[in-house]
């Protein structure tokens, strides 16, 4: 039992993808209620806790959980009786990369940790990129943005916030981010006008409309944020929305059986 939980923890810590299963109802003598099991990302059981015939009937449900990344309650019928199993995906921890260590980065890092992200801050100025400025960050990188992004490497688990000290650096970051695997979220700060001008530049440089379209810029939800802390809330709210495929209208407006029209 403890070994299995330790294995689960090492899976979580190693950011590996898998499935944690729990037998919830059972009439099987060799597969009783409360048994846990751990599967890797190919659906292979790791500790041999489940009888093979039970594993066999779970194959389809497992690939569904691995594919959809949503938990599932599965009822299976076996000749000797039924079985109810809860399959919970073990998802890699999401990464938040804050490009730019200025005012907004301070609350962003705090909120990112609050929301369970693994947080990295990047700035090329030593005064803005050191551990004492960001004690909560998992990683503080002091390097030019191009090299830093290249070394970090983005993927579908990465949320990227571009908040450097100026347009030129923002553009460098965006161009470098485009070279990476598609991130889960790319947001860039700036006024509507600045964003338009920068996007026009990139269009002329040959970046596709599709690429430019997936950038959240101007960044954040429109909640009238003013202070760095408020802007950080607006950015993190947008990230939560993207993470859970939510919507951005008021809860009040979205009530009433879709009367709001969306």
């Amino acid at each position: 039992m403890k070994k299995l939980f330790e294995q689960l923890r090492s899976y979580i810590q190693a950011n590996r993808f898998g499935v944690w299963g729990t037998v919830i109802e059972s009439t099987q003598v060799d597969c009783s209620v409360g048994i846990n099991f751990l599967m890797d990302d190919r659906g292979h059981e790791l500790m041999g806790t489940l009888p093979p015939r039970v594993l066999d009937v779970l194959t389809d449900s497992l690939s569904k959980v691995l594919g959809g990344k949503e938990p599932q309650l599965v009822t299976v019928a076996l000749p000797e009786g039924g079985l109810k199993v809860f399959l919970d995906p073990i998802l890699p921890q999401l990464r938040l990369v804050v490009l730019g260590g200025g005012h907004i980065a301070l609350p962003l890092v705090k909120m990112g940790k609050m929301l369970d992200f693994q947080v990295t801050v990047v700035d090329d100025r030593p005064a803005f990129a050191h551990g004492a400025r960001f004690p909560e960050a998992d990683q503080v990188v002091c390097q030019d943005f191009t090299t830093a992004i290249h070394k970090l490497g983005f993927d579908a688990n990465t949320f990227v916030i571009i908040v450097t000290r100026g347009h030129r650096h923002d553009k460098t970051c965006l161009v470098e981010t485009f070279k990476q695997h598609q991130a889960a979220y790319i947001g860039m700060i700036g006024s509507r006008r600045k964003v338009q001008a920068l996007m026009q530049d990139l269009r002329e440089e040959g970046f596709s409309e599709e690429k430019l379209d997936c950038v959240y810029a101007p960044i954040g939800l429109d909640i009238g944020a003013q202070t760095p802390e408020e802007i950080a809330v607006s950015i993190m709210a947008e990230i939560i929305k993207v993470r859970h495929r939510g919507r951005s209208e008021d809860m009040k407006a979205s009530q009433g059986d879709g009367k709001s029209g969306r």
Binding site: M1, K3, I35
Partner: peptide, 25 residues
């Protein structure tokens, strides 16, 4: 799921009773 209730799942002892569940229940 209870832990360390004496009867089963004695995590602290490190006992691995997974797969041999007859005595767990």
């Amino acid at each position: 799921q209870p832990f360390n209730s004496g009867k089963d799942h004695d995590l602290a002892n490190g006992g691995d009773n997974g797969g041999h569940s007859d005595e767990e229940q």
